[in-house]
Simulated scan of single mutants.
Amino acid sequence: MTDQGTDTSFKEALEWFVLLKDEKATAVDRHAFDRWLAESESHAAAFQRAENLWGRFDAVKPSYNQFQKTRRISRRNVVLGGLAMTIAAPSIYMLTRPGLFADYKTDIAERREFILPDGSTAELGSQTAMSLDFRAETRRLRLHRGQAFFTVTRDVDRPFIVEAADGDIRALGTKFDVKIASESALVSVLEHAVELRLDDTRFKPVIIEQDWQVSYGPDGVQPPKQVDTGTIEAWRQDRIVFKDAPLHQVLTELERYRRGRILLMDDTAGNTPVTAVFDSKRANDALHIIADILPIRVVNPDGYITMVYAR
């Protein structure tokens, strides 16, 4: 089920957490907090939840700490029902994302196709950023975040290479898809093949054939999986397809199609399988649907910070 707010103790705990994070917090503030904490056992539990939430919101921490040095954080500035942070947080979060000054970018739930200087095309999905580095001897692109579908023009004298998540993907054919998720990437080939080389030379290069996909990251290259091309290309028709995907993966994907963060507060719910097809332009509706069909509770589903709990 969905819930537009949180319990009173948790709201108060979020306020206290932000106040005490401020280096200008006074002894009077700390004594008042101690009194509040002693009033009820639920207050201690709520404050622990607030601390856990802050620990998960790692992207904002550096900018938040810098922000603290320039202005006082008032408890009135807390976003109730979401993360205890100032109203400046959306802008701060946008500034922390990679590829801020990339050559090609898309916005929330936007798709755009770009014609590259060699005649190849790159279709970028939601919240994607990519930089271009074409030279006389090579065609190189850097996918900073998001997802892109490449249709490559043949040029035997200049290899076509996409850098993504500490790996190089070299086109040996025409069409392939690359998606970044956190520190990992997923490469799916729809026509001919690509060669994948990781920056970490402990791992050997891998050839990915047509209708196969490979994910890779800090732990190396995962075994290849055969894929349905229709599922891979669904995002190009504004659809998000999940087939027995764990909930944590679903929430990470939905986050790409909305403004803000989705925080899974109970790891026990993260492996719950989800099979569904959603409209990528209506990600908030997807959150409501998931809350109706799974044993989870979604707090503030239409807000900038959304929290998901097991029921």
Rank of each mutant, 00 (worst) to 15 (best):
D292I: 05
I290N: 08
N65R: 12
A136Y: 11
V298W: 00
V241H: 15
T2Q: 09
F47T: 09
Y216T: 03
A234M: 06
L20T: 12
V298R: 01
I92C: 06
E15K: 10
L143P: 01
K24D: 06
T6D: 00
P98A: 00
N65K: 10
A136Q: 13
F242K: 07
E137I: 14
A38V: 09
A59F: 09
D200S: 02
F101S: 02
G81P: 00
A13P: 07
A283S: 15
Q226R: 07
Q210T: 01
L141S: 05
A122T: 01
Y304T: 01
L143N: 02
A27D: 15
P301D: 03
A171Y: 06
L190P: 00
P159E: 14
A171Q: 07
T138Y: 05
A89I: 02
T201S: 02
L124C: 02
I73V: 12
K243S: 14
T275A: 08
D219N: 11
D107A: 03
F150P: 05
I296Q: 04
R311N: 00
L20P: 13
Q48D: 11
R72L: 13
I296G: 02
R236C: 04
D168W: 09
Q66M: 07
A165S: 09
D244K: 15
R49D: 08
E209Q: 03
Y64P: 06
V60S: 13
V78M: 00
A89H: 05
G82M: 00
T201H: 01
V274C: 12
A38L: 15
R75Q: 11
Y93C: 06
V156C: 04
R112W: 05
R71T: 07
T121L: 00
S120E: 02
D58P: 11
T106H: 03
T252D: 15
E41S: 11
I73A: 08
R140V: 07
L124T: 03
D133K: 13
D107I: 00
T70A: 04
I240R: 08
R197Q: 05
F203L: 05
H43F: 04
H31I: 11
E191S: 03
G230N: 14
T231G: 04
I108M: 06
R75S: 07
H43P: 08
R71M: 11
I73P: 12
A245Y: 08
L53W: 12
S182L: 05
